[in-house]
Design a binder for these strands. Structure first.
Lengths: 339, 339
DNA sequence: CTGTTAGCGCATTCAT
DNA sequence: ATGAATGCGCTAACAG
């Protein structure tokens, strides 16, 4: 049942005329070895196409040379960006990512985390999710841990996230500067609060921006969706039915803004002539909507990369300083100046 | 440096009053064990929270219980769908996927494949890509292999793909039935032929459909893009500059159709009143474009799931029958009846 | 059915 | 600097 060439460290030791331990030394660069022997070993390795057995290595060394990565959903643009960044950040190291998908389900998430731990990963990167903070603390006590896209109160030194408050503030401020006063907001429901408090933060930023210009946030301008596109459609329907006039909509993510766009289209409401639209996430298709959508870009790839580098540092016993990331407003054509 | 509770099979053997091998037997279910002993073992396992050391298991058994998955690009909708399917298909097994990203670069791809092999994966699923067929043959000779989204001439029994010819044919036929006669097509350039011959197949299906109703394909109606959105914009510009009238555009993927949509918008050409539009892939945002886009759905999740199940079968020594998948036309509002 | 005995392939002492 | 010896934790072949 076994495949692979079965050449072991002994074979190359024999061929190079040295002992197995010496071979191990040159391979791991763990001690000085005479030049000529080193060369002989390298040559033997090349000739026999020797591949170290990673299980034996791990068993003997106690390290798996893998980093567990727990994401919530393959196929989500923001999360995928982080994954790509992690791949980038791990590229020049000898570590390999081991991915697991929590599928937004707490039970699956915890189970996946355990499986990752069973796989004896050397470090763990968790992207978002809703695993209880206590559990994460336990994990962090035993294994290097970085949590991306989620701010944890009790363990900020493990978190890498976007300043969502300032992001929401910034978007709203932009709309205000464009002359809008009646700005609707599509957010996520209270039930999601713990999960995606990112979304709540954006909402808070929105409120603060309004207050800072003397406007009181109007609950009739705030709708809750479930972050999916379809809920954006419903959100606009809801908003319209409430009868409270608005000249702009700020959606907490791009998915819902897509739905909002469609709903407006169905109603014959023009964008941006009648209503301006701003999303969040800078999904790639946002730039190709009709009209192209203004949105806020999250540096997801960079976040992933930083996460990977940070975890490598932690594995080496350091405590990296983790930056807080900022969103960047991407101005396109879905916002017009209001009167 | 080591973490994890260090309870080994010996500890639980001792606690349960049996030998280590018996413990192994009940854990692996590899042989009959007396009820009482089995219970004692299970209890000890639970009490001590025993976690088998996977390195030792792998070293001793020669199996890694992992499936290598080589994709081309995290964040690509179609590929991500396949990944999700693989996760699903592996869910009830004891195997775990090990992902690698080839990033569309042949060199990286081959390197990733080697790394996967070094990790001693028990099977490999390769999604698309352009690793030479000879190399894949070598790999297949040693390790169970499934290639998804790529049809290989010499090893069809390892391939899982969509019937792209019939898909292209079907889309074109639909357009013809809607009264269109001047149907433009956005495909991928010859340079991509080996890589994504999926795209070529769609093109061939397009041509055949035309011929079957007595129309000769007109080269002035065919443009090449690079599969990215931006190239869809350019494609339409090109088409327009050529001056050959057309009433419909069939794009070989959704990304480019998004670009095409934007280009038409810029030119003030209405969809579908002036020009009908059909994409391919059924990206989630296609349904929320203005107007919602007609496209062809590839059962990517299902393909991934089948791939996973097939690889598990191969690992068990069977040769699974691999189905050929069909695309499904998703009719939305971007196509109108022509005259 | 069950305990004993050998490795699996490598890293790492310990001597030299 | 380098070889020999030991063990990582588990599975499997071997006896009984």
């Amino acid at each position: 049942m076994d495949n692979e060439n079965k050449v072991t460290i002994h074979d190359i030791a024999e061929k190079a005329g040295v002992s197995p331990s010496t071979v191990s030394r040159v391979l791991r660069n763990s001690a000085g070895v005479a030049e000529n022997k080193r060369d002989a070993v390298m040559q033997a390795v090349a000739e026999l196409d020797y591949r170290p057995n990673i299980f034996a290595q791990s068993l003997a060394s106690g390290q798996s040379m893998t980093i567990g990565v727990l994401t919530q959903n393959f196929g989500s643009p923001f999360y995928d960006g982080i994954l790509q960044g992690i791949l980038l950040g791990l590229e020049d190291s000898d570590y390999w990512p081991l991915f697991a998908d929590g599928r937004w389900q707490p039970a699956i998430e915890e189970q996946s985390l355990d499986l990752l731990l069973d796989r004896r990963v050397d470090g763990i990167i968790i992207i978002g999710g809703q695993i209880p903070e206590e559990k994460l603390q336990k994990v962090a006590a035993k294994t290097p841990l970085i949590v991306v896209a989620r701010g944890l109160k009790t363990m900020p030194q493990h978190c890498l996230y976007l300043d969502n408050f300032q992001a929401g503030y910034q978007v709203t401020k932009y709309l205000l500067e464009m002359g809008h006063r009646d700005i609707a907001h599509i957010t996520a429901p209270v039930a999601y609060e713990k999960t995606v408090n990112d979304i709540q933060k954006r909402y808070e930023g929105y409120q603060q921006a309004l207050r800072d210009v003397g406007l009181e946030p109007d609950p009739r301008l705030v709708v809750e969706g479930n972050l999916q596109q379809q809920s954006g459609v419903l959100a606009v329907e809801m908003l319209l039915s409430w009868g409270r006039p608005f000249s702009a909509i700020f959606s907490a993510n791009d998915q819902m803004v897509f739905g909002a766009r469609l709903a407006l289209f169905r109603r014959g409401i023009r964008v941006p002539e009648d209503v301006s639209l701003v999303g969040f996430d800078d999904e790639s298709s946002a730039a190709y909507m009709v009209p192209p959508l203004t949105t806020a870009h999250q540096p997801s790839v960079q976040m992933g990369q930083v996460a990977a580098q940070a975890i490598l540092q932690m594995i080496n016993g350091n405590s990296p300083d983790l930056p807080v990331f900022k969103a960047e407003l991407i101005i396109r054509e879905s916002v017009s100046r209001h009167r």
